[in-house]
């Protein structure tokens, strides 16, 4: 499988005044094209720092992040990010359609193709009827759907999702999880999904990277050998799901106690 995202020797140290804080000690992993990988870690494990380094929003202290073989030094063209704070990530002065369309305009996608992409993306997230609304007229879950539509219309090589469902209610969350699985399968996009929710990570991912506490390293790269067809009821009640969930849970507990990989 060709590599989509390659992270090698990534290190991030924040220096403010005289004190320095080592957020990420050393991270090495790669994500193959078309994979769906989840990253979980205890709170304060530097998940957001990692994501900002990968997306080119933050300069790493050492190491490289490569997207499709090109080192990331600024937000790369082939990457789309869905943030946790949907309400602050969508532009409230634009309609849903304009929000999805703006990055495409910027990419100089011809008008006809743009309309097509926006329509498809809105249809894929089930928001065709809300194209003319403003984001603040929609519920939280719908707003996050708009953010997802914006990301997939952008046709990224890698889709980064930073705890995207942490701020929506449980039922909406389950729907959105299924939506992500469905879009991933249909569009063949590579997804890196950061979450603090163990169940969500196991349910969604093909692999789950468990982070240690700070300074962050990878505690274990857990392969999720659940069947490809997943649904909220059967998958979550499968014995294998429980085993994997328990395993990741244990890892997180160890991470909280400060355990490091041997």
């Amino acid at each position: 499988m060709p590599t989509a995202l390659d992270v090698r020797g990534l290190k991030k140290t924040y220096t403010t005044g005289g004190t320095s804080l080592e957020a990420i000690e050393q991270l090495d992993f790669s994500i193959g094209k078309g994979e769906l990988v989840c990253i979980v870690g205890p709170s304060g494990a530097g998940k957001t720092t990692l994501l900002r380094c990968i997306s080119g929003l933050l300069d790493a202290t050492a190491g490289v992040v490569e997207l499709d073989g090109t080192a990331v030094t600024e937000p790369p063209a082939g990457m789309a990010v869905v943030f946790q704070e949907y309400g602050r990530s969508l532009f409230p002065w634009l309609t849903v359609r304009q929000n999805v369309e703006l990055p495409l305009k910027e990419k100089k996608v011809p008008r006809a193709r743009r309309t097509e992409l926006v329509d498809e993306a809105l249809d894929a997230v089930g928001l065709s009827d809300s194209a003319a609304s403003h984001p603040w007229q929609l519920s939280g879950g719908m707003q996050q759907r708009v953010a997802i539509a914006r990301a997939i219309a952008y046709e990224p090589s890698v889709l980064l999702m930073d705890e995207p469902f942490a701020a929506v209610d449980a039922q909406t969350r389950a729907d959105l999880e299924d939506l992500v699985r469905e879009l991933w399968k249909r569009l063949g996009v590579t997804v890196l999904f950061v979450t603090h929710d163990i169940d969500e990570a196991v349910y969604l991912g093909e692999r789950v990277l468990v982070l240690s506490n700070r300074p962050t390293v990878i505690l274990e790269d857990v392969a999720i050998d659940l069947p490809d067809e997943r649904d909220q009821l059967t998958t979550r009640s499968a014995p294998r799901f429980a085993e994997l969930r328990a395993h990741v849970y244990e890892l997180i507990q160890k991470a909280k106690k400060g355990e490091r990989p041997a």
Binding site: L57, P75, A77, E85, R88, E106
Partner: peptide, 10 residues
């Protein structure tokens, strides 16, 4: 977050 979004989408 809005400024980050603007940067991410170049």
């Amino acid at each position: 977050v809005m400024l980050d979004t603007a940067r991410c989408y170049r």
